[in-house]
Design a protein around this nucleic acid. Sequence first.
DNA 1: GTAGGGTTAG
Length: 521
Amino acid sequence: MSRARVLSTAGLNSIIAVHLRHGQLIDAVGLFRDNPHHLDTKSWNLILSGYARSGCIECAQKWFDEMPHKDVVSWNTMMACFKRAGDSLNAFRQFLEIVRSGLRPTGSTLATVITASVPGSAMLPQLHAIAIRMAFASNTFVGTALIGGYASLKDPTSFRRVFDEIRVKNLVSWTALIIGYMELGSVVEARQAFKTMPERNVVAWTAMINGYIDNDSLDDAKRCFDQMPEKNVVAWTSMIKGYERGGQFAEALNLFIEMHRCCSIKPNQFTYSATLSVCARCCSFVAGRSVHALLLKSGLPLDMILSSSLVDMYGRCGDIDSAVQVFESMKVHNLVSWNSMIGCYARHGLSKRALEGFKRMKEEGVQPDHVTFICILTACVHGGLVEEGERYFQSMHREFEIEPRMEHYGCMVDLLGRAGQLDEAERLIKGMPLEPDMVIWGALIGGCRLHSSLEYGLSAVESIQRLEKDHPAIYSMMLRVYGDRGNWNKVDELKEIMEKVGVRRKQQGTSWVESPLIVQR
DNA sequence: GTAGGGTTAG
């Protein structure tokens, strides 16, 4: 109906914009196609921004290429599209094209290219120089982008100067300053900025909460959270994540319940995945299942991340069947959901199923990453699959171009050590391109202990002592090795040393049974 | 176009 009516270009554009605001990209494109004679560059740009926001770079690129006339906004939008996709190289190329084509960059051109450049990039001072030359240094957007850039370069002096030079500072600039200070651990300066800023919104408050959390000041974060004049779902989710990070799982779950009770703010996908992760971390099946039930009742669509969180939660809580059920109900699997599923099998010693999973994953065209291989190698360790483990380990580099990290070597040493192939294990360690850490030597000592091998154990102990003196684990391990050999002189000698340096015989452990995991109230 | 929140290993 309204589509058939002849519209002015301005009218058409505003209707397209309304469609886009409501996420109705198809309708917007339809309107565009139906009115070929009433379009201008702005109409083209609107649709381009629609494609860019939809996250489909290919669609945006195709549209961009078809445009009969591109202005600087078109280029900016395309550049922002690359930035969103994390493709900083193409974003930067886009910027160069703008400069080369003789178009005059705008403030947003510079702001976008600055935020698109890789954090900590050496390009920043040059981009800053361009901004100054083009008289954009006092531009609000450019200045705010520069603050984040200098924060990633760990240069507080520069971002403070950039901030001071912004002519019209808004909430966003102040918040960027706070985040910059917090990222560098300058909590005092961040707090000062927060106090000084002329007005504060939820975002600024949340930036403070997240900053405190990142700087391990959970109490300050909670105080901030309680003081907030109005909380939104982001603030709640941040605080839940904060408690999770601090290992305060019961507090995290209680906060989720409290949020649920306070009916004005509904948890969203972010909140649910964060809370499920809390349940997974503390292996609380009861809580996890309840959160799953609430999630289903909420009517939120199960997206990739939520499903993966569920798989992981059930997997860690020991309900393998439910993990499989969620996993198999997913229409598509991605890297993380596969890792969660394979990790679940590996943790429960279902090595064969883990390896079958790996095969299926490849058949589905999902490329494994280093996490996948940690799961796979762990599965081999639990199943005592030495040869398979070695084969997968070799394939990492050969087939998948993934360089083994410390954790992978740790798995391999563990695998070989348990199998009694201590010479192999030691050879692997000696040939590592990385400096072996405590975990690696600990894994070797574990194998030595299992097979009562003194010679490899001793060389491991020497190496550990070079790394870190008086680690309690070495002493207790070596005590056992010497004890097994009946070398009581050495046992006494070691005990004496332990006494002298004041090493506790065992590191303090914590009990799951006694921890307050059950959600109160 | 500039600021805040989600999943996987150890």
